[in-house]
Structures are given as structure tokens and as C-alpha cells.
Design a protein around this nucleic acid. Structure first.
Lengths: 239, 239
DNA sequence: TAGTGGTCTAGACCACTAT
DNA sequence: TAGTGGTCTAGACCACTAG
């Protein structure tokens, strides 16, 4: 929560102006005008620099744009890259119902690969959560998640959620940074049985390391049926 | 290029201060101090608001951070998502030498799929560029690029570059936005021969639509040998 | 206590846009 | 010509940090 009050309870003027303008233009079409700086000066009885400080913040966050000689206007929303989402949201984007069956949800000792990925020592405790995931009823994916238990005390006891990312969000641990690797492969017998395909069928493998700040929250390894899943990614941003 | 001069040739003071500070701290370790605002006021003989305008710009771009009561310091560089890069840079990231053999580079009439992807009408002229791409000598990928000819007049005549993205960059058309789709598949006879694998071998398919602003610059369809290529992607940003 | 950044004032002149 | 944003001044008081 942002500090909007001084010690004596007075509101910061530039914040008052900023939020007034934000409320005014909220939902307005791109290109619609915001109040002019001098109009805000008059309305709030503040100096122009104070108004500019308020508008600067809204320009920086991309809500407004200034056009010299013309005025200040609602900016066109900028495109931003694909957010970091999990299976549940991936399915929602496709308009499919995400369902899961938990095959495993327990405390384990980290093996060498998982330990390295989570930046732990081999044998440290991790939470291993394995699910078969469906979209509109059809088997789509087999997902293994490994969570750093130190960051998630009591996670196994609180009842497993549908969306891991929602649960992480509740604890302020939703990843803001992800390192993904994506490859094509064929499945072995065990994975084939769970995905309801023949051994040797082509699959898409997707591994992810999820971080918030410098904390590695989870590592996931997903195997998608190639006939039922294509990964979509949007990269970059507007100028 | 930014305007740094007024009509009469005088430099904008906040730009002078900003670039002075940028030069001072360039390459300095995160946490090292920048000059204080009042020190800059004294050095340049300007008002403090002018100095603040200069520093605000550097804070917004992530170079500096302010700590109230302490001073202004070089900020820790923020992580940003994977930039939009092509094969040449993908290989460079792996420390591999990117080489290509052009199989096709010609003007064609857009088929239905390409026309839709480039937002053209079927039969419109497109540039089709097909290459077999190698990394450290080994065949890695078969890439078909379709370019909007209207945006790239004379492109075929200027001699084909190694890196498409470098060539686009030279024309101010390097994509800043990309829509990618990634799937696993098996190859047919023609692709198999070019990739030097058996038909039916598993491959990674990567399609991309590259845009700058609202202009669709190119559409690419790449087929990677699954045994020689894993896609790496980093998503998100620091708080 | 001295120094820092945060907030704020009450003006000023400029270039540019639209009428 | 009137209105807009861009730049700039010369101060002021505040809260906070560090020695």
C-alpha cells in the first residue's frame, strides 16, 4: 500500500490530483482528453509543478500521453508480453475447462536434478505434486511440480488448490520471473499410460523455473500431448 | 534521435545534467552513489527542479534509484523478458556459429495461410525465403520466412543478409512484438531429407508473426531437429 | 547536526496547435 | 489569438538517515 498521507493525516496533493485524474479517465476511450494542467491547477488550488508531478506518474504507467500544444489524452493501452501463467490460465485462455487429478502430493528428498533447479542441496525437503491435467475432459498434460518447502510451510496440510499459481499468489509467491525450456520428445511407457497414448508418441516437454525476486519458488516439468496442445507465447512490448 | 537543442542552439539543461550523470555512473557497480541533487544544482547553476527532472528520467529508465534520507544510487539492473531474437542470435546465445544455406529467395503470391498471417489478400506479393540453418556445422533447422513485400521494397535485390533481424533493424523494421506458437510434431519426407533425419522423426515446430507497431513484418515457420534444439525463454520482469 | 530526497509554491518564457 | 504542454527559476518546509 502506498503512503498517501503525511504524519498529520493530510493527503499528498500530487496523489490527490493523480487519483482524481485516474478516476476521471478510467474506462475512457484512448484519445479522449484529460483535464489540462492549468485546469487542474485551478480546480485544486495547487502549483503547476504539483499537477505535472501527478500527471507524470500517469504518463509513466502508460495511462496518459501528452501531446505538446494539444493537451493530455488517454493513451492507447500498450501490449505487454505474455504474463507468467500456469495450466489453469492456459486452458482458460483457450476457453477450456481445466481439471486435474492429483496422483501424488507429498514431501520428498530432492534428487540431484530438482536440487540443482531449486538451488537446494540434494536430500533437502521438497514438495512433489504430480497431476494429470485435462481440458474439457480430455487428457492434455502430465505435470510434476517441485516446490521449495522452506518457502511454503504447511502447504500440503492446507488442502491442495486447483491452481498452483493462485495458491502462490495468496502467499505473495506468485512468480514474476520464469525460465522456461521447451522441447519435442517421445514418451516412455509410464508417461504414455498416464497420457493415454502409445509409448513412443510425440509430446511437447515444458520445464519451468519460477522465481519471485531471487527466490526460486517452484520447478515444473510438464509433458503435453502434441495432438492436444500448442504453446502460445507473445513477446516484447510496444515502443 | 532526441531533440536536445532549442531552436537557438542552446542545450536543454535537464538533458545536459541527465547525460552528465549517466556518463558519471556508467559502468559503476549497483549501489554506488550518484551526485546529490544539491551538488548538481551547484555544479550546473540550475534550479533543483531541473536536476530532479534529469534524475527522474534516469530513475524511470531503471539506471538510478533514490533512497530518501540517503541519496541517489546506481540501481541493480532489472531482469527483462527474452528479447525478440532470430536464429542467428539464438545460436550466439549458445556459443554456436550460425550458418545458413538459402534454398529459396523469391517473390511469390501469398497462399491462404500466409495471407491470413500477414494480413494480406490471397495472391498479394510476398517474399519467401527458405533456409537450412546450421549450428557449428550440424543441421539444426529448416526455416521459411514470408515477408510483406510492401514494407521491404527492393529487399531481394540488395543481397540476402545472414541475419534477417539485422537487415530489418537497418530499415527500422525489427519486430518489437512477436506472436509465437510452438508445438511438437513429426516430419514428412521433404523436411526429413533437408534436416537429414528419417521421415517420422520428432521435431519442434516454431511459428512466429513479427510486428513493429501494428505492421506485420514477417511470418516464419521453423522446424527444429528435436535432438539438437531446445527453446529457452525467459518471461516476466523484476518488480 | 548536517545532508539527503520528497513535496510544494508562484511565478516566467518558450514552441506548438487549433481556430 | 488563445490554449496547451515543455522548460526553468529560486526559493521553502518536511521526514528521514547517518555520524
Amino acid at each position: 500500500m502506498e503512503d498517501v498521507l503525511l504524519r498529520d493525516g493530510r493527503a499528498l496533493k500530487h496523489v490527490v490530483v493523480r487519483e482524481y485524474v485516474r478516476g476521471l479517465v478510467a474506462g475512457n476511450a484512448p484519445g479522449s482528453p484529460a483535464p489540462s494542467e492549468r485546469e487542474l491547477v485551478h480546480r485544486f488550488g495547487v502549483a503547476r509543478m504539483t499537477v505535472r508531478q501527478a500527471l507524470d506518474a500517469l504518463v509513466t504507467e502508460g495511462l496518459l500521453e501528452r501531446i505538446p500544444g494539444r493537451g493530455t489524452f488517454v493513451a492507447r493501452p500498450r501490449r505487454v508480453a505474455t504474463p507468467i501463467i500456469g495450466y489453469t490460465e492456459e486452458m482458460a485462455r483457450r476457453g477450456l475447462l481445466a481439471e486435474s487429478v492429483t496422483l501424488l502430493a507429498r514431501r520428498e528428498q530432492a534428487g540431484p536434478g530438482v536440487a540443482r533447479a531449486l538451488n537446494l542441496t540434494e536430500g533437502d525437503a521438497v514438495i512433489h505434486w504430480r497431476r494429470v491435467r485435462r481440458g474439457d475432459g480430455a487428457v492434455v498434460c502430465l505435470e510434476d511440480n517441485y516446490l521449495n518447502e522452506v518457502l511454503l510451510p504447511g502447504f500440503l496440510q492446507t488442502g491442495m488448490p486447483t491452481s498452483l499459481y493462485d495458491a502462490l499468489d495468496d502467499r505473495g509467491l506468485r512468480p514474476t520471473w520464469a525460465e522456461d525450456s521447451i522441447s519435442a520428445d517421445t514418451v516412455g511407457d509410464e508417461e504414455a499410460a498416464l497420457l493415454e497414448v502409445d509409448p513412443g508418441t510425440v509430446v511437447l516437454r515444458h520445464s519451468r523455473r519460477g522465481l519471485v525476486d531471487d527466490k526460486i519458488v517452484n520447478v515444473s516439468r510438464s509433458v503435453y500431448r502434441a495432438d492436444r496442445f500448442t504453446l502460445w507465447i507473445q513477446l516484447g512490448h510496444d515502443a
